[in-house]
Design a protein around this nucleic acid. Structure first.
Lengths: 217, 217
DNA sequence: TGACAAAGTAAACGATGTTTACAAAATGAA
DNA sequence: TTCATTTTGTAAACATCGTTTACTTTGTCA
């Protein structure tokens, strides 16, 4: 099985070359500026060749991000050792934002662009996907935080809590990416906004609500 | 000045026709599916004609939204009568989300897409722009809320407060629009998530923070 | 009436992602 | 070796897209 093996290897290597070229262009110019032609030209192959290795452009970029996204999951893994789940919740928010700041184009692609239909993708597709794993981690931390008994009793749904924490930090980032040039808003520093959001949400979780005049929520 | 006047009128009317066609397509299919050709075909003119009335596609869609966005500002105007600024802050968040739910395509365009450079646009451009006015309203309400003295003293920057409230609700909506089909997240109902976000943030504002072990923030 | 400006058009330009039709090369079996 | 077959690659084209060039028509006003 000599030649077959080698060809397999060469094929993988070309695929890597494509991804490298794409990564370079993508990180430099963002999604829209990365054209199939530009990638092909960069590795000195015809555009058609890319389609021998990837189904289409979306497939290519998605695989590119899946690879680079390992860093995303790893940033969270470091936090697994934190004892206090409430503090871990805060740290999660900050780590999430840090990634977005560091890899803005990746963040945009994974969290700020239309998602294709996920039909037909089985569970095996999720396994090891940092996006999924990270959400699971956040969900687990939320459940632990609730279990401490320190949160106000209205918060007892880990899923809802996780989604709210996620949304809060995402909101700061998303607004930053698409609106940071608006001249009529005196934007505070991004880091400060992230920290404020995280602290505010956690303060809300721990608070004895005195805001509503009605019985509950 | 008979004919000149009439031609002026006809020109305006054609512009309206273009906007109507665009609005129909835009609301039905979203930004990307609205092509200049499709708009032209719908009103039975050549594509070139659109460029006699609008500089380019972005100009066209932006004018379309500016028009429809009056509704956005009006939804807020109704809340101006609310006495308690803290309650008004909550109501603002809910009204904001309501608009996004009702006009998702408009919301996406105004808040979830790349903004062009705003250079060269003077102040006159902002006047009467609901987006700007609404932010001013939110900012004012934030300042009033702080002035009540009921918020925790760490919150004394109206701008930062406004930006955080905005980001919180926006985060819920943005995540909803781009991730609602993700099968690995058991999404809670959108309304519930919005309400949770608003309540949590305001609870955080009113709380005596007991979360951090360090001196302050 | 006739110069002139405005309104409108057909066709094309230069991009894009993607595919069709075909050539070259390596492979594996006879 | 020989030769059919699969793999790997290409050039050219297709169908879109936003936008522009070059031209025709039409109405206005001196």
């Amino acid at each position: 099985m000599g030649p077959t093996n080698r060809r397999e290897r060469e094929k993988e290597e070309l695929k890597s070359q494509i991804l490298d070229a794409a990564r370079y262009l993508f990180a430099r110019d963002g999604y829209d500026s990365v054209t199939m032609r530009a990638i092909a030209e960069r590795i000195e192959y015809s555009p058609r060749t890319l389609y021998l290795h990837f189904q289409d452009k979306e497939d290519l970029v998605r695989e590119l991000c899946r690879h680079d996204f390992q860093e995303f999951g790893q940033g969270f893994a470091k936090l697994a050792g934190m004892k206090d789940p409430v503090e871990r919740l805060k740290a999660l928010g900050l780590a999430y934002a840090k990634f977005a700041e560091e890899f803005p184009n990746h963040y945009r692609l994974m969290f700020m662009s239309e998602c294709p239909d996920y039909e037909g993708h089985g569970e095996e597709e999720w396994k090891g996907n940092p996006e999924v794993d990270s959400y699971a981690f956040l969900l687990g931390t939320s459940a632990e935080a609730i279990a401490t008994g320190r949160l106000h009793p209205v918060h007892k749904d880990p899923e809802l809590l996780a989604q709210t924490m996620w949304a809060g930090v995402h909101g700061v980032l998303a607004l930053h990416f698409s609106k940071c040039n608006d001249p009529w808003v005196k934007w505070r520093p991004l880091k400060k906004r992230v920290k404020t959001m995280v602290d505010l949400l956690v303060d809300g979780l721990l608070a004895q609500p005195i805001t509503t005049k009605k019985k509950g929520r």
